[in-house]
Deep mutational scan, measured.
Amino acid sequence: KKIKIKIKVYNPETKEVLELEIEVSEEEAEELAKKLAEELEKKGYKIEEVEI
């Protein structure tokens, strides 16, 4: 079964909002969402919402 992940991120420095969407297997979904959120935060983005 495929799971659709939508991530909306906001960069306070540039006032930019990015929306990302990807489909992955159920097993990958939670781990991938967690890794993406961590990487984006390292780059200065503030995570507003992660929906699985």
Rank of each mutant, 00 (worst) to 15 (best):
E51A: 13
K43A: 10
K34A: 07
K42Q: 10
N11L: 04
L20K: 04
K8G: 03
I3L: 14
K15V: 03
K1D: 08
T14G: 05
L20A: 03
V50Y: 04
E49T: 12
A33C: 12
G44S: 01
E49Q: 10
K6N: 13
Y10A: 04
L32N: 05
A33L: 04
E51V: 15
K43E: 08
K8S: 07
K42F: 06
L36E: 01
P12Y: 12
V17M: 11
I5E: 00
A37K: 08
K8L: 02
K35H: 10
K8P: 00
E30H: 14
E21G: 07
K35E: 13
E23T: 07
G44Y: 00
E16H: 09
K43Q: 14
I47W: 02
V24I: 04
P12G: 11
P12I: 13
E39F: 08
E16Q: 13
K6D: 01
L20D: 01
E41V: 11
E21A: 13
S25R: 08
I7P: 00
I5A: 01
L20Y: 13
Y10L: 10
K34H: 04
L18I: 13
E13H: 11
E39D: 08
E41L: 07
A37R: 06
Y10K: 11
K43Y: 05
K34Y: 03
E23D: 09
E38G: 07
E51Q: 08
K15Q: 06
E28P: 03
K35N: 05
L20H: 15
V17R: 09
I52L: 09
T14L: 05
E48F: 09
I5L: 08
V17C: 10
I52N: 02
S25A: 12
K35C: 15
E48M: 14
E13F: 11
E16G: 08
E41P: 02
E38P: 00
L40E: 01
N11M: 08
L32F: 09
I52F: 15
N11R: 03
E21N: 10
I3T: 15
A33Q: 06
I5G: 00
Y45A: 00
V50A: 02
I7K: 00
E16S: 05
E51P: 01
I52E: 02
P12V: 06
E19Q: 12
K42T: 04
L40N: 02
K15C: 15
A37Q: 12
V24D: 04
E48N: 08
L32R: 12
K2D: 04
E48G: 02
E28V: 09
L18T: 10
Y10N: 08
K15W: 10
E21D: 04
P12H: 06
V17H: 08
K34M: 09
V9M: 14
N11K: 14
T14M: 04
K2L: 10
K46Q: 09
A37H: 04
A33K: 08
V50K: 01
K8A: 02
I3H: 11
E28K: 15
E39Y: 05
K42M: 11
K15I: 08
I7G: 00
P12E: 10
I3A: 15
L32K: 15
S25N: 14
I7N: 00
E26D: 06
E27R: 09
E28F: 06
E16D: 05
E30S: 12
E39C: 13
E49P: 01
E41W: 04
L40G: 01
I3V: 05
K2V: 13
E13Y: 14
K42C: 14
A29W: 02
E31D: 05
G44R: 00
G44W: 01
V17T: 05
E21L: 15
E19R: 15
E30A: 11
S25K: 05
E30T: 08
Y45G: 01
K6C: 11
K4P: 01
I52Q: 03
K8H: 04
E13Q: 04
L40K: 00
A33G: 11
Y10W: 07
K8C: 03
E41F: 06
G44T: 00
E41Y: 07
E39A: 13
K42S: 12
N11Q: 08
E28Q: 10
A29R: 03
K15G: 13
Y10D: 00
L32D: 04
K2M: 15
L18M: 12
A37S: 13
L18K: 07
I22Y: 13
E27H: 14
E13P: 07
A29Q: 04
E41Q: 15
E27S: 14
L40H: 02
S25G: 06
I7E: 00
I5C: 02
E23H: 12
E23S: 08
T14S: 13
A33R: 05
K1C: 14
V50Q: 02
V24K: 01
Y10G: 04
T14N: 07
E19K: 13
E51N: 10
I22W: 14
E19A: 09
V17F: 06
Y45L: 06
I22E: 09
K34G: 04
K4W: 11
E13A: 13
L18S: 12
G44I: 00
E39R: 03
K8Q: 04
I22F: 13
I3K: 06
E26I: 12
V9K: 01
G44N: 01
L32E: 10
V24G: 15
I22A: 15
K43I: 08
L36Q: 02
L40A: 04
S25I: 07
E49R: 09
S25M: 11
E31H: 09
Y45H: 03
E23L: 10
E16T: 10
I7S: 00
L40I: 03
K34V: 04
E30F: 11
Y45E: 01
Y10T: 09
K4N: 09
E48D: 04
E38S: 06
